[in-house]
Design a protein around this nucleic acid. Structure first.
Lengths: 235, 235
DNA sequence: CATAAAAATGGACGATCGTCCATTTTTACC
DNA sequence: GGTAAAAATGGACGATCGTCCATTTTTATG
């Protein structure tokens, strides 16, 4: 099985058990205004926050009339959920592109995930803001819960499998447990890096963030990771 | 200098340059309703989120009349800020109590911070929710920015100093840089742990979370940390 | 107890919220 | 090009938002 094919299969497996329908059931003629509303909603959330994102604000940005939200989404809440779905798709598309390009061995998949999540395509002000806003609004819009859950589960499956791949080679007897622990360690670090970036994007040093993550990885698994992992990131 | 005194001095130093006035300028007779409003605001944010926390909701919970918010806080925004200040004070009080009790050497201060941030007193559903909600609302209420900044700066100063203390002993030539990197590594992990806990408090395993953090620490600084650090946590 | 200050009440206010619908415009098809 | 369906408009609607203030109640002080 070729490298690319293996990675694609891997991704599909991760997505299978997420339970989220990522398909869009709109016909082309409807897509213009519908998509404009989603785009405007995301832009508004990013710019002024979900609290201040009102129906009036959204339709003004989208340049459509008041009734469009009711026609396409039957209400504001469904529009917010659709915007969350679009943001999640955006995240996965970027990540998938990185994973498919990387070699299938665990260490390279992990490396690709980190470099994606800290690189200029995966880690942007827009993405961190929309993600944080939507996560914070889970309480107000329970339907949003599935999106953060899905992302967490996807990343966890991906990293646990990758680390298991590595620990299997090391012959470590507690490999399964170690893989789960390392997965949590790395994912929590990435989570924290996203917070740091969102709060202080101007001071955030991507290369240093990557270096820190790889230093931890190199400490625990010196044969599989080293500080050169962070080097790739500037490419 | 005794252990306790040293720790107290350390804390005061960290707090000096935060620029936040933690004093409350209310006389006792005013404190009842004023405090009720703050408590009700925090409870409402925790329970139904900041978006749904309206003036009507707050006064109903506090059991006071409509005019109280205007009398004591001149508006809703100041009340939100006061609630954020109270939540921040609460966080610092818990952390201070842990740091003062710990020995002053770097490794023990770090250990105390971790065990506090993952223990049942420092990591609660209420604290993670209020913290996340307020951080997410920085865009809507810019005055909130100072509280998350202050916490971040405090924790960073504390951990950088502690790691510097350790790296000074190891005689590592790049000790200063390593201390800053390790500080970021650990704090981002703690940040991620808080997110995990908030999203899935029922599945969160405090002992395992602590073990993961200490495993990383033990890998990088084997002479100063080991998995027994997490053991203390159940006490 | 009288009296002035402070605290507290609760309704009125205009603004804005999200929803909904009567109407108009556009599209698709015979 | 006539016609029916679909898309889009924009204002009306009641509800709720946060603010403010005339009024009442409580507290403090002589």
């Amino acid at each position: 099985m070729s490298t690319a094919l293996y990675a694609i299969t891997l991704i599909k497996v991760y997505f299978q058990d997420t339970g989220v329908d990522t398909s869009v059931q709109t016909n082309p003629s409807r897509r213009d205004n519908r998509q404009s509303l989603i785009d405007a909603t995301i832009a508004s959330i990013v710019e002024i926050g979900l609290i201040r994102t009102s129906v009036s604000e959204i339709i003004a940005r989208a340049g459509v009339s008041r009734g469009m939200i009711h026609l396409h989404f039957q209400g504001k809440e469904n529009l917010i959920v659709a915007a969350a779905e679009a943001a999640a798709d955006d995240y996965y598309d970027t990540l998938k592109a990185h994973l498919v390009k990387a070699r299938p061995e665990g260490q390279f998949q992990i490396e690709a995930m980190i470099l994606c999540d800290l690189g200029p395509t995966g880690l942007t002000e827009e993405k961190t803001r929309i993600w944080h806003e939507l996560r914070g609004a889970v309480r107000a819009y329970p339907a949003l819960h599935i999106f953060s859950d899905t992302r967490d589960r996807f990343l966890q499956n991906m990293t646990v499998d990758s680390f298991s791949d590595i620990f299997r080679q090391t012959g470590c007897p507690e490999g399964a447990e170690q893989a789960r622990d390392m997965s949590i360690a790395i994912l929590t670090m990435m989570e924290g890096m996203w917070s740091d970036f969102m709060l202080h994007p101007e001071n955030f040093d991507r290369a240093r963030a990557a270096q820190i993550v790889f230093r931890v990885l190199a400490s625990v698994l010196p044969g599989y990771f080293d500080l050169n992992g962070a080097r790739d990131y500037t490419r």
